[in-house]
């Protein structure tokens, strides 16, 4: 049994290494000179920091800050709204439930490119163009989180809520005091998902914002890729690596809470 587990662990790590191989490539290439960028050798003697210096000369830090504001806000607000809706759809009985659920799911099925123009019109008419509001608010509403929370709450142990009702808590009180704090096992993965998705969002910020000082990181990255007569891939990859660091940080800091999930299941 123990031996099997060791073999399994080694197997998983082998697969994991295979998966991060392309990322190694990204990391190494971002330290290489423009001439060597495609060389796949493991020769580490010719590494340089010039690419990162070149990236830092652009306005990428300001863009990273903007992206942080947008992604954090969207994620925090979305978690709350989506958990509420998911709970209502999974646990509460009310007329029109099936329809509301179906309707919400159907909003996921429209390709973004098609609603891009009308979405721009709506947002502009709300006076949100060229503002953090325009970057943030339309991105909060997404049936993905609602759907996942609904599925999660379907299997949530009923006994806890019933105990809370007996103690005289209202439905809302039960949700906020009891259910929401216990939803961490799903909030954490979704936080990672929402943060990353918004961090990597490109098309929407591109069209809704004209202002240089509100430029988000992906638009800045696209400007570095450019479209000129000479693509400096080493600089592009360095910029890509730099712009991915906040997502890496979110991943690592969330790890702790993901592991917490195991202990929590002991409650049941």
């Amino acid at each position: 049994m123990g031996k099997n587990k060791t073999i399994l662990t080694i197997f998983i790590f082998a697969c994991g290494l295979l998966i991060i191989l392309p990322i190694f490539f990204l990391v190494f290439s971002s330290f290489r000179t423009p001439e060597d960028v495609f060389k796949l050798s493991l020769n580490l003697s010719n590494l340089t920091l010039d690419n990162f210096k070149a990236v830092l000369e652009t306005n990428i830090l300001r863009a990273i800050w903007n992206s942080l504001v947008v992604s954090v806000t969207v994620t925090v607000v979305a978690m709350l709204f989506h958990a509420m809706s998911g709970y209502a759809l999974a646990r509460l009985n009310f007329p029109g439930k099936k329809f509301v659920f179906g309707w919400m799911i159907s909003t996921m099925m429209v390709p973004f490119t098609v609603i891009m123009i009308p979405l721009y019109m709506v947002t502009k008419n709300l006076g949100l163009a060229n503002s953090y509001g325009g970057l943030i608010i339309p991105m909060i509403f997404n049936a993905y989180g609602i759907f996942l929370f609904r599925q999660f709450y379907q299997d949530f142990p009923k006994e806890l809520e019933e105990a809370a009702y007996v103690e005289g808590l209202s439905i809302a009180g039960t949700f906020f005091r009891l259910v929401l704090p216990l939803s961490k096992p799903m909030i954490i993965p979704l936080t990672i998902g929402f943060f990353t998705a918004n961090w990597n969002n490109y098309l929407w910020p591109l069209i809704i914002n004209q202002k240089e000082e509100l430029m988000v990181v992906q638009v800045a990255l696209a400007n570095i890729v450019g479209g000129g007569y000479e693509t400096a891939w080493s600089i592009v990859l360095a910029a890509a690596l730099l712009s991915a660091i906040p997502t890496f940080i979110v991943f690592f800091s969330m790890q702790k809470y993901l592991v917490d999930g195991i202990k929590m299941s002991g409650i049941k």
Partner: peptide, 28 residues
């Protein structure tokens, strides 16, 4: 009470999804 709470919980998303997804869909 349950119905009201449910719709209260759904309200932000109903509003947001209507405004930022459904209206653009109908427009499309």
């Amino acid at each position: 009470n349950e119905t009201l709470t449910a719709y209260g919980f759904l309200l932000p998303n109903l509003l947001g999804l209507t405004l930022f997804v459904f209206v653009p869909m109908v427009y499309a």
